[in-house]
Simulated assay, not measured.
Amino acid sequence: MNEQFMIAPRHGAVAPPPQDASRVGIMRRIAAARLRYCGLEAMTDDVMLVVSELLTNALLHSGTTEIGLKLTVEEGFLRIAVSDGVPSGIAPVPAGEEAESGRGLILVAALAQHGGGAFGISDGGAEAWCTLALARQERS
């Protein structure tokens, strides 16, 4: 699966317009449908979390006008990649105890590593990706 969508340019702490924010939900539904089509519905909850966090991070922090979501199966893993084309200093940063946000990338990295997968940043920060191990019955 390889999907791209356009969004309005954002600057500063201005919230994204509702039509842009709704695209995260649309991409979640497309990803869930693709998982069902490929017989990977057992991974839906984890994939929805990863897709939500990576897309929201790109939407809120990149300043881009186009975001891409790609799901591929590679060597026993599902790879989820979100690209925004904007090199940046993206990295998981621990949030303070009282912070209401800022834990998404840490959560994605922990989820991936817990199941033997990985989390990373590529292209100078223009792409965030995660691999999730396929369940035994899904590897056949």
Rank of each mutant, 00 (worst) to 15 (best):
T56Q: 11
T56P: 00
T56F: 00
T56S: 12
N57S: 08
N57R: 07
N57E: 11
N57C: 12
N57G: 10
A58Q: 06
A58P: 08
A58G: 01
L59V: 06
L59Q: 03
L59G: 03
H61I: 01
H61V: 01
H61T: 03
S62R: 05
S62H: 01
S62N: 02
G63Y: 09
G63K: 05
G63F: 06
G63T: 08
G63D: 09
G63A: 04
T64F: 01
T64N: 10
T64Q: 04
T64W: 05
T65L: 05
E66P: 00
E66V: 12
E66A: 14
E66N: 11
E66W: 00
E66S: 14
E66D: 09
I67W: 08
I67A: 11
I67S: 05
I67H: 05
G68L: 00
L69V: 12
L69W: 11
L69Q: 11
L69G: 12
L69I: 14
L69D: 13
K70S: 10
K70D: 12
L71R: 03
L71W: 05
L71F: 05
L71S: 07
T72D: 15
T72S: 13
V73P: 00
V73W: 00
E74C: 07
E74P: 00
E74L: 07
E74M: 04
E74W: 06
E74K: 12
E75P: 00
E75T: 15
E75Q: 14
E75V: 13
G76F: 09
G76Q: 03
R79F: 05
R79P: 01
R79S: 09
I80G: 04
I80L: 13
I80Y: 04
I80N: 01
I80A: 02
I80E: 01
A81S: 14
A81I: 04
A81W: 07
V82K: 05
V82G: 10
V82D: 08
D84R: 04
D84Q: 04
D84N: 14
D84P: 10
D84S: 06
D84G: 03
D84K: 07
G85D: 11
G85K: 10
G85M: 07
V86H: 06
V86P: 02
V86N: 03
P87M: 10
P87V: 09
S88M: 11
S88R: 15
S88N: 14
G89Y: 03
G89S: 14
G89W: 02
I90P: 00
I90A: 15
I90C: 11
A91G: 08
A91F: 03
A91N: 03
P92G: 03
P92E: 06
P92N: 04
V93M: 12
V93I: 14
P94E: 15
P94H: 12
P94L: 13
A95I: 09
A95D: 11
G96I: 09
G96P: 13
G96N: 11
E97A: 15
E97Y: 02
E97F: 09
E97R: 13
E98S: 13
E98Y: 12
A99Q: 10
A99L: 07
E100D: 00
E100A: 01
E100L: 13
E100G: 15
E100Y: 05
E100K: 07
S101Y: 09
G102A: 01
G102Q: 02
G102K: 01
G102C: 06
R103I: 11
G104Q: 09
G104L: 06
